[in-house]
Amino acid sequence: MGTHYITEDCTTCGACEPVCPVEAISPGDPMYVIDKETCTDCGACDDVCPVEAIKY
C-alpha cells in the first residue's frame, strides 16, 4: 500500500495542512511533510496543492 508524500516541488504555501482530516501534514524544513503512519490516503491534500507537489 502506497502513501501520499510531498516532493521537492513544494513551495510551502500551506494549502495542504488545513485540509488534512487526520492532521498528518506538518511544516518541515524546507518543505511540508506527511506522516506516513497517520496519513489515510484520502487525497484531500493532493486536490488543493497548487503546484502538484503531492504524489501517491
Score class of each variant (00 low, 15 high):
Ile54Asp: 00
Tyr5His: 12
Ser26Gly: 08
Tyr5Gln: 09
Ala53Thr: 03
Glu37Arg: 14
Cys10Ala: 12
Cys39Arg: 05
Pro30Lys: 12
Ile25Leu: 11
Glu8Phe: 08
Cys49Met: 13
Ile6His: 00
Lys55Pro: 00
Pro30Arg: 13
His4Arg: 10
Thr38Lys: 13
Val33Arg: 01
Pro21Ala: 14
Pro30Ser: 15
Tyr56Glu: 08
Tyr56Ala: 12
Ala15Glu: 02
Cys45Asn: 06
Val48Ser: 05
Ala24Asp: 06
Pro18Trp: 12
Asp35Thr: 07
Thr11Ser: 15
Thr3Lys: 07
Asp41His: 10
Val33Ile: 15
Ser26Tyr: 13
Thr7Asn: 13
Lys55Arg: 07
Asp35Leu: 03
Cys10Lys: 14
Pro27Ala: 11
Val48Ile: 11
Thr11Arg: 12
Pro50Glu: 10
Asp35Glu: 06
Ile6Gln: 00
Cys39Glu: 08
Ala53Lys: 00
Val48Met: 10
Gly43Ile: 05
Asp47Glu: 12
Asp35Asn: 10
Glu23Ser: 12
Ala53His: 03
Thr7Glu: 12
Val19Pro: 01
Cys16Trp: 02
Ile6Leu: 05
Cys20Ile: 10
Cys16Ser: 13
Asp9Gln: 13
Cys13Thr: 14
Cys16Leu: 13
Cys45Gln: 02
Ala15Gly: 07
Ser26Gln: 14
Thr40His: 03
Ile54Cys: 04
Val22Gly: 11
Cys20Ser: 14
Met1Val: 08
Glu37Cys: 09
Cys39Ala: 08
Cys10Tyr: 03
Thr38Trp: 05
Met1Pro: 07
Ala15Arg: 09
Cys10Phe: 06
Cys10Asn: 09
Ala44Cys: 02
Ala53Arg: 01
Cys16Thr: 02
Cys45Leu: 08
Thr7Ile: 06
Ala44Glu: 13
Gly28Tyr: 15
Pro18His: 12
Thr3Tyr: 07
Val33His: 06
Val19Ala: 04
Ile25Asp: 04
Ala24Gly: 06
Pro50Ala: 03
Cys10His: 07
Glu23Asp: 15
Val22Met: 11
Tyr56Leu: 08
Asp47Met: 08
Tyr5Phe: 09
Thr40Met: 14
Asp47Ser: 12
Cys16Glu: 03
Cys16His: 01
Lys55His: 15
Thr38Ala: 14
Cys45Met: 04
Pro18Gly: 11
Val33Tyr: 04
Lys55Ala: 10
Ile54Thr: 00
